[in-house]
Nucleic acid binder design. Structure first.
Lengths: 326, 326
DNA sequence: GAAGGGCGTGAGAGCGCTCTCCCAATCCTG
DNA sequence: CAGGATTGGGAGAGCGCTCTCACGCCCTTC
């Protein structure tokens, strides 16, 4: 199994290496007969371009990174497969590799090195810690980055997000439409944009809602719901800011003798797998994760091809998925 | 922001490029003072080796692929984050990239190309379709591959798996210990090794168990359980061959007026997130996914460094996680 | 004190590709 | 039909790195 080089293809086709290269890269100006000869040579020799060599001269790695939080935080996030799928869809046809990096000590530094030494053309940052200095460093260095989700502090960085505020409002309208009279919400962490926006959007729609805080974890959903039915026993509608929390909260309602949705309507957020493994299945706010991921990839590619293009924010509209819980 | 090359480092350190290279790659025989000078030059210039150039001459991409089934099948699998995490743990300290590829039309062919043109040093195959010819082609071509899970047909390929048979036996013993008298199992698909082994292992322990077939999906768990309580109403213990199916099956029991675990004990398999989002939480058979993934990475690396090393099977022992369902 | 053996170092040849010249051939225009 | 404009193709210079090879130095040994 010997390696076939462009040189060999050229020899077989009876042209120069330059012309063979033109054909491989689809350059315009090659005579049709020569193009044909080269293509025949390529398939007869089984030629595959050596990416390392190409990368060395073009200074493109043809690879992008996906920076994820560590396993633990990720387990709460049901979206990994969808994100990967969306990015892949855009990136694969271009022959670009998707490199996964999970946060650990030094991961982000590693990603920066990979970017700077040309091993990665750009990165998508998921679930970035608001205090993380890396996004700032990256944009300062003019390196292509896209954030999943609005950054906590406004900064000139491209990001893709769902309209969290509107999603929460959707949930609020649903509960009102169900004639709920005593409405509450279990929030996400208030030091994250998603947590903030979902609360704000919900309050805009249901200003007198009872507010209990959670942190997006299932356990916090349990605790918050226990607190809620203690302090507000007549609650009949609750917007839980993540499906995972809702999944924890519903059994608490059941144990307290309340039926879902008859006594208490529950609306979640995310349309994650937890929405389907809940009993009853969750009515929830859906984010088009795969499409959003694809858009992140597109935005990143744009930045790679046009280095100095301005930061953009792309915001997707959420939708309400009505199931059995409310 | 200009690129620093080894040439420049060498100039700053007052040595030749060769010596600088030796220091970068930790070669032994370099005089201590020169080594120091080079190291100082490296940090003062902020040198980062260009992987493409290195890769071109060493013929190593320093990247491995993780081939996954498509999003749809993946959603059923809760393990993606754990697998990535385990592989990353082994691979990152070595500066090796993990490239994710999701199955789609042509993905596997793409992976083969990447392997053959030296863009990937090896691949880990997850959830391979038994009919897929790719694993066979890869080993025939002598390319480094590791399978997640035993192949359906015996073949000379390295794989890492959990002792499925023993795991199912663990579940059987648990149900017997709980004094269940009428025991059943909801199986996985019988055209997969995992589906087969879990049934065989369970039957070895509980030969007179009632068998209802499922296919690992949540919906099939619902259907199977409905069938089970119809044809065998006095069932008081059931081993469901995946947590996701168990998650669907338990509400069926509840709706039929049976309490879990009081009337019917349920034991699942996987210890996936579905085990925790079930109500009550699932007693289940745990696979050490992260460790298994790490082992896959190690096996792959071994194959990469020792191309003709023999195929190995590494089998991990499962454990029973006792929670509330049985 | 001369000859032999290490060991550390430098020179230089590539790895396979792209891309910029530059030249030759063709086409158009006056 | 001559001159310029246009176009396609080839030669060759690198991209940044590793690694072989040969050389020089120092230490040993007789």
């Amino acid at each position: 199994m010997k390696r076939v080089t462009l040189e060999e293809v050229a020899r077989v086709a009876g042209v120069s290496r330059a012309t063979a290269s033109r054909v491989v890269n689809g350059a315009s100006s090659v005579d049709e007969s020569l193009r044909h000869a080269v293509q025949k040579a390529i398939s007869s020799t089984g030629y595959l371009p050596n990416i390392a060599a190409r990368s060395l001269v073009t200074r493109r790695a043809a690879a992008i990174g996906l920076l994820l939080p560590d396993e633990h935080r990720m387990n709460g996030d049901p979206h990994l497969a969808s994100v990967v799928s969306g990015v892949t869809r855009v990136v694969r046809p271009l022959g670009i590799h998707l490199v996964l990096m999970m946060t650990g000590p030094g991961t982000r530094a590693q990603a920066m090195s990979d970017l700077r030494c040309g091993r990665l053309d750009g990165v998508i940052l998921v679930h970035t810690d608001p205090a993380d200095p890396v996004p700032g460093q990256l944009i300062a260095a003019g390196l292509p980055v896209v954030l999943a989700g609005r950054p906590l502090k406004p900064m000139p960085i491209t990001y893709v997000d769902v309209n969290q505020t509107e999603g929460a409002a959707l949930a609020g309208r649903r509960l009102k439409a169900l004639q709920c009279r005593r409405i509450a919400t279990i929030t996400g962490p208030q030091d994250t944009p998603a947590g903030q926006d979902r609360l704000a959007g919900f309050l805009a729609e249901v200003p007198d809602a009872v507010v209990v805080h959670g942190d997006f974890t299932r356990q916090s959903g349990i605790t918050a719901m226990e607190k809620l039915i203690r302090c507000c026993p007549d609650v009949d509608g609750v917007f839980v800011a993540s499906d995972l929390m809702a999944n924890g909260a519903i059994p608490v309602l059941h144990r307290s003798g309340r039926k879902v949705p008859d006594d208490v309507a529950v609306v979640g957020f995310d349309d994650s797998s937890a929405a389907l493994t809940s009993e009853p299945e969750l009515t929830t706010v859906r984010q088009p994760i795969t499409d959003m991921a694809a858009e992140m990839a597109r935005q990143l590619l744009r930045q790679i091809t046009e280095p100095r293009s301005p930061a953009t924010a792309v915001v997707f509209e959420p939708s309400l998925v009505v199931r059995d819980s409310g």
